[in-house]
Design a protein around this nucleic acid. Structure first.
Lengths: 209, 209
DNA sequence: AGCAGACCGTACCGTACGGTACGGTTCGGC
DNA sequence: GCCGAACCGTACCGTACGGTACGGTCTGCT
């Protein structure tokens, strides 16, 4: 078994390997330290030798873990049929609530912390992976909805990228940074729903046709 | 010399100590690793023993460095005399440009990366310091301006906190996260000015009276 | 039964780094 | 000139952790 392919998808991995990556993920969430090769081996009840055979080195394991988690988050498509203002608003709010609840989750915070730490050590790959599967994936997911809204005469903007970034800013604001910096921010269902509703209304004020 | 007081202000430190902290800061900016006690001692041409006498331990040095940098960023007051729509717009844009250029600077990125890394290791203090002197200081700085704008009948909002967070979101959007994750984002004077102008216009659309 | 490969567990190595100890030098006070 | 405090430079210690080696076990194949 060579040290694993360049990209990791669900079926690139054996069940045992998924166990290992889930172990690494759980250790990561429990606190940035603790994620040592010995720790992962113990948690997954496997030998360090196997770890190195499968993942090459520590960075390989980390990369695989991040990709593995990214692969878990599958997008929910939004059908652009029968788009009126109300369904567009619902789609935007659903997207926003999902975005905020993911961002506020333990796993997202831990993963972003790890990737950010590595970005400060000329190991740019983890950050790129997180960006690609986080922020950029979100853009690819929402922009078709925005463009559908424009085609239906409900929204007005030049570039969907700019419109998306505005919506992103209105929804996320300073929340992610504060969470990453360790602030214990209470974000229940109701707060999230209220914040997203406000953001959506503001977005309509700015970009409504 | 006891291991330094709890809070660090400009005159708590001797010039030699400031040299040491600047050395630590430069090492930090040059790459998250490299910031070792030996490295700081060598860069500052001092002995490790002195480092430990002054700052207690590595965390003490890091904390002092972060506080020292925070103390450097002094706020520019905005006079709320003769406030009309144009001067308010100018004040908001000046604030926004400053915010974005600081956030995009090497020092801010490095400091936030450090604090975020530590937040993932139950060392919450660095994150708290960065939050206090970054995000929260910005709020304390801008909210009086917003309230002055409301008093002058130019703006309309319930809570200045919410209004501030909206402006923050409109200005920063995903920029800080992308920088922290290692994306090489070109942010020149002109892009910043244009982004902030757009954000300010959007803010007036949302909160203009 | 015998063999090969995958894997577990553990012991081990090398190194990097936090922290300490100590001799040597500079400098201010007397 | 003498003393002590502060400090530099370097050597040193302990430990944690990445990475390797190796013996033992299980499984599947012939």
């Amino acid at each position: 078994m060579t040290p694993l392919a360049l990209t990791i998808s669900d079926d690139t991995l054996s069940d045992r390997q998924k166990d290992v990556l889930n172990a690494a993920l759980s250790l990561l969430v429990e606190g940035g330290d603790g994620l040592t090769m010995t720790g992962v081996a113990r948690r997954a009840s496997c030998s360090k030798e196997t770890l190195y055979k499968w993942f090459g080195d520590r960075d390989g394991l980390l990369t695989a873990t991040v990709q593995w988690q990214a692969a878990k988050v599958r997008m929910v498509a939004v059908d652009r049929e029968t788009l009126d203002k109300r369904t567009l608003a619902l789609a935007l709010e659903k997207f926003g609530r999902n975005l905020l609840s993911v961002l506020a989750g333990d796993v997202s915070v831990a993963l972003n912390r790890l990737a950010i730490s590595h970005a400060g050590q000329e190991k740019r790959n983890l950050g790129a992976i997180v960006l690609e599967n986080g922020r950029f994936a979100m853009g690819k997911r929402l922009k078709p909805v925005l463009e559908a809204g424009r085609d239906a005469g409900l929204l007005s903007f030049e570039e969907s990228e700019t419109a998306f970034r505005t919506y992103y800013g209105l929804v996320v604001r300073d929340v992610q940074l504060r969470l990453l910096l360790g602030e214990h921010l209470e974000l229940g269902e109701t707060e999230i729903a209220a914040d997203v509703k406000r953001a959506r209304e503001q977005f309509f004020t700015l970009y409504g046709a």
